[in-house]
């Protein structure tokens, strides 16, 4: 079956493209989740005051507001995740699916995947990669949430962000670009074991990356748009809807 667009990465930006293109679009991701680049990386984002250009993104913003994303002056996206998944209910999405290869040929692209039913081949005119490709990144973090019931305070040396839950703090643990999850988790607990009065509530399932100002072009003709390079998920979604509308 051929699609106009195959989106690599079940991201907020990818969901925006899918929203604009409907059945003409297929989203593929190796992970079992969607929207992980913000929600599961604990990168809840900033610049939520920046105007959104599409009705779809403004509608998602309203959903987020109604679900407590912006209570007080803090941001928390946990309660918003189900609304994001709702957007994908009627879309073509393959989660848990490895992308084996992407080949550019005269007819467009051939994407070979490997999922629970083995190898499959998909065709599309355009391929857009919205994943957080390390080649385009400058810094890498494994974030984690700590909290205290002892009135303790975190040392200033830590890079922290308060978020929706009063007693919680997101700590940003910078790791090397070459570090995998095992090494990164070790670095997280190297920090945690030095903290007095705090315990870990959650360690992110995904890395947070920061990106170069200019995303490098792919040599294979794939358009690169890392969703996580946007300041917040709504801006990424907004950009996806616009991009999809232009295709």
């Amino acid at each position: 079956m051929g699609f106009d667009v195959i989106v690599l990465g079940a991201t907020f930006l990818g969901a925006g493209i899918a929203e604009a293109l409907g059945d003409r679009c297929l989203m593929i991701d190796r992970r079992p989740q969607a929207g992980y680049e913000f929600i599961n990386s604990l990168k809840f984002g900033h610049r939520f005051d920046k105007p959104l250009k599409t009705e779809a993104a403004r509608s998602l913003l309203e959903d987020f507001k109604q679900n407590g994303a912006f209570e007080g002056d803090r941001i928390c996206l946990f309660e918003c995740a189900p609304h994001f998944y709702s957007l994908l209910l009627d879309k073509n999405v393959l989660l848990n699916t490895e992308i084996i290869s992407v080949e550019h040929n005269d007819d467009g692209f051939t994407v070979t995947t490997h999922g629970v039913s083995g190898y499959r081949v998909h065709k599309a005119k355009t391929v857009i990669d919205t994943r957080s490709l390390p080649d385009a990144a400058t810094e890498k973090y494994l974030n984690f949430i700590v909290n205290t019931d002892k009135g303790a305070t975190l040392p200033d040396r830590l890079d922290t962000e308060k978020f929706g839950y009063e007693c919680d703090t997101v700590v940003k643990c910078r790791v090397n670009m070459s570090d995998g999850y095992q090494t990164a988790r070790k670095k997280v607990f190297d920090i945690v074991t030095t903290l007095e009065g705090f315990k870990v509530a959650m360690v992110a399932d995904e890395f947070e990356y920061t990106f170069k100002n200019e995303i490098p072009k792919s040599e294979t003709g794939i358009t690169l748009f890392p969703s996580q390079s946007y300041a917040n998920p709504l801006l990424a979604y907004d950009a996806g809807v616009i991009l999809g509308g232009e295709l």
Partner: peptide
């Protein structure tokens, strides 16, 4: 089945578990 599994993953996460979590806050699926 790739499509069936993906639909299940998405459908289940679209629930906010309101009945099950009582008044507790949802963290993450």
């Amino acid at each position: 089945d790739d499509e069936a599994l993906s639909k299940a993953l998405i459908f289940s996460r679209s629930y906010n578990m309101e009945e099950e979590r009582n008044s507790n806050q949802l963290m993450i699926h």
